[in-house]
Amino acid sequence: MIEKKTAHLAIAILALAVTWVWSSPSFAAIAFTLTVTPSSISFPDANPSSVSQIPASATVLIKVRVTNGANQNWSVHLLANGDLLNSDGVSKIPIANLTWNATMTGRACTNGCTCVSGTMSATVPQDVIRGLGNTPNGQFNCNTNFLLNNQWGYNTGPYTQTITVVTASP
């Protein structure tokens, strides 16, 4: 008799577990695969009197693959982890002096994917790609050309900072 009740209890737990697995939002959640190449870019020194914006050493290719994204808006955004910091530990170049121009490359996205140009921020994530639903051709690619505003007021030295490239869906 006890064994029978135990069996019923086990069946109930099993049913609950199976229902949870298949109805769980996490199971069907929109999924992203993000690729950023190269992972590092540099800006060479240039005369501010003749070069007002310095192009980065390389174009950054951002690829995103979206699955399970039916009818969901999604984006890829950039968020700086601070201003560009000089090795002297004090001097900074405000990160808002870093801008980018993003253009689509490769196969077009048929459901509203766009590459978005913008200005870097350390406080508000800035979209670089926007889309809706799955990427129909496997992935969506944006060539991102970064530019650094060149000013006489920058102190000499090497500067560095990291940018987080992250996918998001509401």
Partner: peptide, 9 residues
């Protein structure tokens, strides 16, 4: 992903 930015002045 993380993108590293370097600049030389």
């Amino acid at each position: 992903k993380t993108l590293t930015i370097n600049a030389t002045i």
